[in-house]
């Protein structure tokens, strides 16, 4: 009887696995069909200038470095600001709490695009002229920092009261408790969303190109596209590069998450 029960469970399990496999296969097939359709559209029905593509792909691709550069610098700034804002939010000192909430509210209450132009166009009016890269990093970093502070706050909140009490009971000061017990656990909690934020950043960094001072993928694409009236081709090239970057970064992120999920650390 027991024997029969086991084999029935196995059968059910196998049927389930078959379904999962089937689903995955169908998804992959549809993806390939959609991709094929896109390629077909652009190779026949929609006329595109392949000569333009051949001449300008390298020029646009050489903006990848700048795109990654600005994204990495911005995310580093964002992480620092987010951490400070999250800690400020926990502070019992009124001015510290106020500065933190003010910052988050102001940034989240205004468009990213406006903030970027503020750094490039409004500051010079006050006599502050920043190099393009720095202005872009400041704008993106400030913006993402405000949003990511919520992630850190959630991370800190995810650490149980018992953890703090155990630290306090062995005589740790509040600072030691935060640095050695709470933050390491909060950061681990925040790593997957931070990965998502970095991937979004690589794409949002394209907004900075609108100011004309940062020569990233987007800037290069719009420049050659406009110059030769081939924006369609130029934007397709840029889209492919952004998409590829996202796919690669997502793969990295999935691997990292799988490692964290194993939870041996």
């Amino acid at each position: 009887m027991n024997q029969a029960g086991t084999s029935q469970a196995e059968l059910l399990y196998e049927a389930q696995q078959r379904k999962v496999r089937q689903f995955r296969n169908n998804v992959v097939i549809t993806w390939i069909v959609l991709l094929g359709l896109l390629i077909f559209l652009f190779s026949g029905p929609i006329q595109i200038d392949t000569d333009f593509i051949r001449r300008n792909t390298l020029f646009i691709a050489s903006g990848i470095g700048e795109t990654l550069n600005i994204s990495v610098l911005s995310i580093v700034l964002a992480i620092i600001l987010a951490l400070l804002a999250a800690l400020g939010r926990l502070s019992t000192i009124p001015p510290v709490y106020a500065v933190s909430t003010f910052y988050v509210s102001l940034i989240r209450g205004t468009p990213l695009f406006l903030q970027i132009f503020f750094f490039f166009l409004a500051l010079p009016q006050l006599g502050i002229v920043l190099p393009g890269l720095i202005a872009g990093v400041l704008a993106l970093g400030l913006n993402y920092g405000a949003y990511m502070s919520e992630t850190f706050r959630a991370g800190i909140a995810s650490v149980s009261k018992g953890q703090r009490e155990a630290a306090i009971a062995i005589g740790m000061t509040p600072t030691q408790t935060m640095r050695r017990i709470v933050l390491p656990q909060a950061l681990r909690f925040a790593i997957p969303p931070m990965g998502n934020d970095f991937i979004s950043m690589t794409k949002d960094s394209a907004l900075v190109s609108a100011t004309g001072f940062v020569h990233d993928v987007m800037w290069r694409a719009t420049r050659v596209g406009r110059a030769e009236f081939n924006s369609l081709e130029a934007l397709i090239i840029a889209a492919v590069f952004y998409w590829m970057m996202t796919l690669i970064l997502t793969t990295f992120q999935n691997r990292m998450e799988a490692r964290l999920a194993r939870g041996d650390r």
């Binding site: 018992g162 953890q163 630290a167 306090i168 062995i170 005589g171 740790m172 656990q185």
Partner: peptide, 29 residues
């Protein structure tokens, strides 16, 4: 607090540290 040790119902070990690291954390830090 240095003169008292406490053991909790929910253990409250630090999950990001190995057993040994958990135990030396207090004395060292």
């Amino acid at each position: 607090r240095l003169k008292t040790g406490m053991v909790f119902q929910e253990f409250n070990l630090f999950p990001h540290m190995s057993v040994l690291e958990n135990v030396i954390e207090g004395p060292v830090i």
